[in-house]
Design a protein around this nucleic acid. Sequence first.
DNA 1: GCCTGCGG
Length: 648
Amino acid sequence: MSAPAPDPVFTAFCAAGLWPGLGKRAAAELPAAGITSADAVTADRLLALPRVGRQRAERLFSSFLAAQPTYAVVALLVGAGLEARLAATAADALGSDAARRLRDDPWALLGLPGVTLGDADRLAISVLPGADRQDSRRGRAIVAMTLRTATRDGHTVLPADLVVAALRAEQIADPAAAIAAAVESGEVLEHEPPEPEFDEDADLDELPEPDPALRTLSLARFGMAEEAVAENVARLAATAERIADPAAVRSVAKGLDDAQKAAVAQVLGAGVSLLTGGPGTGKSRTVAAIVTLLRSKGSEVALAAPTGRAAKRLEELTDHPAVTVHRLLGAQGTSGGFARNEEWPLDADVVVVDEASMLDVELTAALLEACPDGTHLLLVGDPAQLPSIGPGHVLGDLIDSGVVPFTELTTLYRQAEGGAIARLANAVRAGELPPVDSPDREVVVVPATGSAEAAQRVVQLVTDSIPRALGIDPATVQVVTPVHRGAAGTIELNKALKAKLNPGEGTVWGFDVGDRVVATANHLDLEPIGFANGEVGVVTGTGDGTLDVAFASGPVTVSGKAMSDLRHGWAITVHRAQGSEWPGVVVVLPPEAGGMLSRPLVYTALTRAQRHLSVVHASGAALARAVREVDVRPRRTRLAQLLAENAG
DNA sequence: GCCTGCGG
C-alpha cells in the first residue's frame, strides 16, 4: 500500500516552523512516520519519530492542537499562493478566529507588517469568488494602509486630500465612500479643519468657512493619543498646586544661572513645564538641583527617560534612581498596555523625563494618563535633535502650542564658548551652514568624492592624522555615520578600522580583546550594572563563550543572548550616538545618505564632539539644503492645535 | 529607502 500524497497545507505549515516544539529535522522526518496530513497527527504516530519519547509525543500533539488557529490561516494563505510564514503574525494580530476574519475581509491582511496590497488582493480573489477591486472593504483597507505608511514618517494625521489621491492611484472610484467606510469601522478618525478666527466686526453673511482642504484623517490609535495628551496636559495644568514658595529656589541656586533658576521655580508651580536647550547648557545640572530641592521638601520624585542609556546617565547625574519610561509605567510586553494608568496611577509628586525629544505620542499619552491630578510633570530635552522613532512631534508641539510654560537654556558651559564646534553647532541649529573657520583645527572639514574615498579618509583621520597632528588618542575618537550599508556605512567602516586598529580572527562571536563594541539593546540586569543600548565599550577579556567588556559605566561579563546585542563600535550610526559624547568625533556624510540628511541629523552628529570634530563631507549640496530646511519632511501632527484649543 | 526606542 502506498502512502497518500502529502497534504500541501500540512507540509507548508510544518516547513514554516509553525508547529511549536517541532524542529526542522523532526519536520523532515514526519512522512517517514506516516504523518503527511493534519488528520494523521496522533501521539502514537509521533512516537515513531526518532528521538521522541512518550512525553515529548504527547506534548507535540497538544501543541499541534493548540496551533489550529494558525493552521486554518495557513490553509487560506497556501490556497492563495502566499507565504505560510505570515500565518503566525496573522494569528497573533487577529486572534484565534483569524481565519474566519480573513475570510470575511481578506483585506484585513493588509494590517500585518510586510503585506502588500497585491498580497491582500490575491487572498481576496482566492476566498471571495468574484472579488471586486471596488469592494468597500478594499477601499477601507487602503485608507488605513495609507495612514499607516505616513505613520512610519512620523505623521499622526494626513490631509484628507492626500488620502483621496492615494485611493485614486489604486483606481478606487469613490474615495469618499472608502473614507466613510474606514471611519465607520472605527480604525480611522476624521478631523474637521480648525475654525477660522472669528472676527466680531465681520458681516454675519460672510462668516469665514473652515477650509475643507485642511480636513485631516488619522489612525484612531494616534489621533486619540494626541487628544489624550492635550486633555491631560490641560488637566495637570489645572490641578497642580504650588509645591514650595519660589524663594525656596534659593536653597539650591548656588551655581545656577538665571534661566536655570527660573526652570526650577517653574516646576514648583506648573502642572506641566518644559526645559529645553542644546548639549552643554546645563539641563542635567538644573534637573539635579530640582531633585535636591524636592527631596529636601519631602516630595516624591520619579525620574525617567525614553532610553536605557539616558535613564542610566540621569541616575548618575542626580544620584537618584531613574528608569526607562516603559519601566516607570510597568510596560507589559510588546502588544500590551501599561500596568500604571488611570486606575493605578503613579504616586510621585513630581515626574521628570529627560531626553523628551524621543517621546512619541502614544508613550506620552500613557505617561500623562498615569499621572494623577496634582502631579507636576517636567519634560527636559533638546527639540533640535532627532525626532522620536514612533509617530508624533510631542516636544516640538508642546513648545509650538505656546500654552505650556517652558524655559530655554542657551548659555553654553561645556564646550569653550566661541569654540569652533559650538559655533558650527549653533549655526546649524539656527539653519545656517557657514564656512568653517578653525585655525586651531578644532573643526576640520575633509572633502571627499564618493563613499569609497570618504571611507579611506575616515580611516586615515582616525589612525593617522588625528593622533599625529592633534595628539588625540584614537581610543577616544568615535566615528559617526548616518547609514549601516555602503562603503562609508558602519559595517564596512568597522571592518576597515578593525583591520588597522585591532586586527584579529574574532575568536569569540567575532570579537577579540581590544575590539571596540557598541550595545544594540538594553541588558540593565547583568552584573554588576549591566549595559544600555548605545553604550560603547572595549573588550578586555574573553572566556568560554563570554566577553569581558569595559563600558564607561563599568565592567560587564557578557554571554548568551546579550552577546548577540553587541556589534563592533568604532563606527556607529548617528541615531545610536544620540545621547553620547566623545573627545574626538569623525562625522561621515556619504553621498548615499543625501536623502536622509536633515537639520536634526546633522546637528545631532556634530554635537557629539567635545574637543575635536572632523567632517568627511561627500554629500555635496544635499548637506546645505538639509541644514537650511527645518526638516526635509516635517511631521504632520494635530497636537499643537489641540493644546491651543483646550487652553482657549 | 534610510534610521531608530521600549518590552518579554
